[in-house]
Amino acid sequence: MSETHGHPNYIKIWYWLLFLLIISTVGPMLEIPIVTLITAFGIAIVKSYMVAANFMHLKFEKKIIWLLLLMSICLLGVFFFGVGSDVMMTEGDQWIDCIEDKSCVEQRL
């Protein structure tokens, strides 16, 4: 069960989250790409930190939990760059179009 630590003011945090929700909904209505990016995704990061730190009590957790989550996010980064090259770079000397060039299908058989 929880170690002895004080509880944050949950109602106050909830009010802040609702305030940020309004900004993140209204901001993109301006239809300015940079404002959309900041208000939609920037605020999503702030909101998620507030939920994790205060509601999930992450700010009271031991380092091992932070390391556990950091490891997950780092491995997600490895996944991103691994898959990213496959999705984003569809042209180049090493790529074979297996629909046009049947040789790669034959190689698999």
């Binding site: 909904t25 959309t36 939609a40």
Partner: peptide, 10 residues
């Protein structure tokens, strides 16, 4: 919190 901007507003 992440799905909302991704699928709805951005």
């Amino acid at each position: 919190i992440f799905l909302f901007p991704l699928l709805y507003i951005a």
